[in-house]
Write a protein that binds this DNA or RNA. Structure first.
Length: 311
DNA sequence: TAGTGCTGCATACCTCCTTT
DNA sequence: AAAGGAGGTATGCAGCACTA
């Protein structure tokens, strides 16, 4: 009898697949030191940079955000009942744009386009479009009733923003919300265009959430620094797990910097906290040094090498 | 004049980004 | 498994315009 041909020719099934090591943030500059009271251990933990343009932190944050949004919206949709409509009509994607040439600044520091002749800088535009979204949201909630929302800012080619907003809830089911949004956004606030994606566009909540968040890791480098890139109704994105302060006791946190050679040359604790545990300082210093050396060896990041004085 | 709806503002609370 | 600051969200209230 012939042996059955395995379809798993690249040995990708769990039986063969090797466990992949979790990628580490290449921009780590901070550490925290904490005591695990349950296991009676002290740990030094690198803190990732959590920036959207980081190749490791960006995708990780995106996964977390998507997961939290999916759970929240799926839960909301479970309880939505509108007579004569299927549940999927309770999700709508709204696109709100910044007005055209008459409001843009030709001397923008990003990608200037000569045809724009307005006065607003990109920073102005971000502030203004979010302020108007705040007004629009408040007005709509007053008119339609409660709905939940998740908004994400996306830069256009020249850095000026537009907003994608996911509206979720029974009160956004009627088609008639579009003219009202247009009246406010275009006519009253003097903003750009409005687009309301038909609900059939999305297969399900996952599709909608994935679509709206896809730009978070793609284009943040085209945006000015320090801007909020997304937002949501209260409690929608609330973290479900936080470390138990009774178990994990923070001892210190700090940062390290690199010298001219690119090697780590300086470690500085910037906060120290009272701890019930007395730690021998020599032992602590040794542990900290070992930890950096271990990081450098493990992840082959020369900038993490530490010159540590054993004396 | 009273009622209604809209709007802006103040405030409390909460989340995200930057910094050390 | 950070803290602090900036700024977003939610809510109530006062002032204004409009209407019956």
């Amino acid at each position: 009898m012939r042996e059955a041909l395995s379809l798993d020719c690249i040995k990708n099934n769990s039986k063969f697949r090797q466990k992949r090591e979790k990628p580490k943030c290449p921009n780590t500059r901070n550490y925290v030191e904490y005591a695990d009271m349950d296991n009676k251990r002290v740990k030094f933990v690198p803190v990732s940079c959590k920036q959207w343009h980081c190749p490791v932190c960006g995708p990780r944050r995106l996964r977390e955000l998507r997961s939290r949004a999916r759970k929240a919206f799926t839960n909301i949709l479970k309880h939505v009942e509108v007579k004569g409509f299927r549940k999927k009509y309770a999700i709508k994607m709204l696109t709100l744009t910044w007005p055209g040439r008459d409001r843009r600044n030709p001397s923008s520091s990003l990608i200037p386009r000569p045809e724009y002749c307005g006065e607003d800088t990109i920073e102005d535009a971000h502030r203004e479009i979010k302020r108007n979204w705040n007004r629009l949201r408040t007005a709509l909630k007053g008119k339609l009733g409660w709905f939940d929302q998740l908004w994400v800012v996306e830069p256009q080619q020249d850095g000026y923003p537009h907003l994608h907003v996911l509206l979720v809830g029974k009160n956004v089911v009627p088609k008639s919300i579009l003219p009202e949004i247009r009246r406010l956004w275009c006519d009253k606030y003097g903003m750009g265009n409005v687009d309301l994606k038909p609900t059939r566009y999305f297969n399900d909540v996952n599709h909608a959430v994935n679509y709206i968040t896809k730009y978070l890791t793609k284009a943040p480098s085209r945006l000015p620094k320090g801007l909020r890139l997304f937002g949501a109704s209260k409690y929608i994105l609330e973290k479900t797990w936080r470390p138990d302060p009774n178990r994990f006791q923070l001892i210190s946190r700090g940062f390290f910097s690199t010298g001219a050679s690119g090697n780590v040359s300086h470690i500085e604790p910037i906060w120290s906290f009272k701890s019930e545990i007395e730690i021998d300082l020599q032992q602590k210093a040794k542990k900290l040094g070992d930890w950096f050396l271990e990081q450098a060896r493990k992840y082959r990041q020369p900038k993490l090498w530490l010159s540590w004085d054993e004396g």
